[in-house]
Design a protein around this nucleic acid. Structure first.
Length: 427
RNA sequence: GUGGGUGUAGUUCAGUCGGUUAGAACGCUGGAUUGUGGAUCCAGAGGUCGAGGGUUCGAACCCCUCCACCCACCCCA
């Protein structure tokens, strides 16, 4: 045990954990590439003001912040969106739209840690800026789901629950909720699965909904899209959004994710700035926190950068996803893939063995060899433990004939061949 | 930040009523095996019993404080 443990909520990545991190990062990148997104990044340390401006002064409680030696109030970035808005805000006008950018930043938050929730994590951010079509919303969610599919998960493992802020807003307004009470109503709907029904009704009562209307509001949360639309005849906003969502779900079906998505009014998301589609992806067993969440935030650029462009995006963290992969036996464990271990049978063969190692490495193979002389049995044991595909033995007999003995560890078969023949066979 | 639970070897755990030198399995190292791995057998290393203080003739065990992790809140970028 080291004298210095890692800080709470911060991770050491031993090879096993690093393999999983690399696996996740590779899936993120592959999907971002296939979906035509460009990569960007910003500084991990930003001015505290950047986050206060977007989220309000309460956010400071959840930030890793301090005053630097120049007297500046700074914070480790807790999210990527403010950085994205800054970077794009001044340039969006000169770029062909829509802009599709992704990043995989390490983000920080000062919070008590729990499973799936640390003080540091990596997060895939994918954003589409300058596009108002609902099809973009569908494409974005399909990208998040594609990541899960690439990693071996299926529609029976995970589900994306989708709602739309405009629907909830319109329905609550129709029930008589005033603008200043909307946040409370959103919060009640968001927690309807966790809080007892009576508590929900009480909270709705506190913002002026009588029993009948409160019951009605809670009743919305279990409706399908069509039930919801049918329950609000004559409401033009709801009719329009419902039509949008039909297009949205149809697009997801065509993109191959029909079984992965479901309409669910209970999805609200905490952030105030969402203006349209919102979604969260969960494991179907409900054992973990949300895997990924996002939505449309059409007003954020105008509020923060003074540029009126629609935008949508999601954040997809590595922690919950890693837990899910482990639980389903899909997590990568191999931290390296060795092609061969080369064993010198005796001291006289050492030189030839090292030359062979150099030749193989030079040809691009991953090769190791025992540093200390010892019995062949011991070397073989080490080769087996190393996970190398082949063990290559070089002794007086082989050297005399200009060959090496190659043993395929998986089946134990042995063959003699030259370095050239070996390399040629692997092509 | 609030409340509850749990802390013993690298890992998973046992440890009786407070009683001598804290154990097991797996893993690791060495050997059986000086031209052939996985199995088996033998041996070995590895512990501030989370930390500090207290009670006691004596504490892994009881008490207090702190720390860490887990769970639920708060919050969720």
């Amino acid at each position: 045990m080291s004298k210095h443990a890692s800080l709470p909520g911060f991770r050491d990545f031993h090879p096993e954990e690093m393999a999983r991190r690399t696996q996740i990062m590779a899936a993120w990148r592959e999907v971002a590439r296939r979906y035509g997104f460009e990569e960007y990044d910003g500084p991990p340390l930003e001015s505290l003001e950047l986050y206060i401006e977007k989220s309000g002064p309460e956010i400071v409680n959840q930030l890793f912040n301090f005053t630097d030696k120049g007297g500046r109030d700074v914070a480790l970035r807790p999210e990527m969106t403010p950085t994205l808005v800054r970077m794009l805000g001044t340039r969006i006008k000169g770029l062909p739209r829509p802009v599709r950018w992704f990043s995989t930043p390490q983000l920080f938050r000062y919070e008590k840690q729990q499973r799936g929730r640390l003080r540091e994590h990596f997060q895939l951010n994918m954003d589409i800026i300058g596009e108002e079509s609902i099809v973009a919303d569908a494409d974005l969610l399909s990208a998040a789901l594609e990541v899960l599919r690439v990693l071996g998960l299926t529609a029976s493992d995970v589900v994306a629950r989708v709602s739309d802020r405009r629907l909830l807003h319109a329905a609550l307004v129709e029930l008589g909720v005033s603008e200043e009470n909307l946040a409370v109503a959103y919060n009640v709907i968001d927690k309807v699965e966790r809080d007892p029904r009576e508590v929900c009704l009480e909270r709705l009562g506190a913002i002026g909904l009588d029993r009948e209307r409160a019951e009605k509001a809670l009743g919305l949360t279990d409706m399908t899209l069509e039930q919801f639309a049918a329950a609000h005849p004559g409401n033009e906003v709801i009719a329009k959004v419902a039509e949008d969502l039909r297009v949205y779900f149809a697009a997801l079906g065509s993109l191959g994710f029909g079984d992965w998505v479901t309409f669910d009014m209970k999805i609200v998301r905490g952030l105030a700035y969402y203006t349209g589609v919102v979604f969260e992806i969960f494991d179907r067993r409900g054992e973990l926190r949300a895997i990924c969440g996002g939505g449309r935030y059409d007003k954020l650029f105008s509020a923060l950068a003074g540029v009126d462009v629609p935008a949508l995006g999601f954040g997809f963290g590595d922690v919950v996803l890693g837990e899910l992969l482990k639980d389903r036996g899909l997590a990568a464990t191999a931290s390296r893939a060795l092609d061969a271990m080369v064993i010198a049978i005796d001291d006289a063969s050492r030189e030839a063995a090292l030359e062979t190692v150099a030749a193989l490495r030079g040809a691009g193979l991953a090769v190791i060899y025992p540093y200390r002389a010892g019995g062949v049995g011991k070397a073989m044991k080490a080769a087996s433990a190393s996970g190398a595909r082949d063990t290559i033995m070089i002794g007086p007999d082989e050297t005399a004939r200009g060959v090496m003995k190659v043993k395929r560890m998986a089946d134990g078969s042995e063959r003699e061949m030259s370095v050239e023949e070996y390399l040629g066979e692997l092509k």
